[in-house]
Design a protein around this nucleic acid. Structure first.
Length: 139
DNA sequence: GCCAACGTTGGC
DNA sequence: GCCAACGTTGGC
């Protein structure tokens, strides 16, 4: 077996629908409800052990925590018979300090991440550098 | 609450 | 296969 190449991701959620604190409480969840092909394809490209930033949209507009993929894509139980996917994630840790959208926008190297360029996409890849930059801003 | 951006649907 | 209409998302 060759060593897996780790990828980095960012997922968005409205905190009043499902917050990072909910995930901490649940210890693990499956990421359901994705009904967008691009987001679905990103879900399917996730591999066990990949790290994922958790972003709170709308009210908070900030990256709040880090989680990890524990199970790769399988059919979404909330859409039986349809071609949608979910992955399992577990929380790793909360960021010491949340990284707001406004702060991300101020960093030149983060100008082109999909969070800013494609604000409606809910599951998106991040480069290692972008991931590390955001994590650093949150520590 | 408004509006821009984007995806999806349906008529032709 | 094109494009207008419509719905949804999310920033402001």
């Amino acid at each position: 077996m060759t060593a897996p190449i780790r990828s980095y991701w960012l997922v968005k959620q409205e905190p009043n629908a499902y917050s990072f604190d909910d995930l901490l409480k649940d210890k693990q969840t499956y990421w359901d409800g994705v009904r967008n092909y691009q987001a679905r394809n990103n879900l399917r490209a996730m591999r066990k052990g990949d790290e994922v930033l958790f972003y709170h949209s709308v009210e908070e507009k900030a990256v709040v925590g880090i989680c990890k993929i524990t199970k790769e894509a399988y059919p979404d139980p909330t859409a039986p018979g349809e071609d949608w996917s979910v992955v399992d994630i577990k929380p790793v840790r909360k960021l010491k300090k949340t990284v707001t959208l406004a702060e991300i926008k101020e960093v030149p190297s983060l100008k082109d991440i999909p969070l800013i360029r494609q604000s409606r996409l809910s599951v998106m890849p991040l480069s290692k550098k972008a991931y590390e930059t955001i994590v650093k801003m949150g520590s």
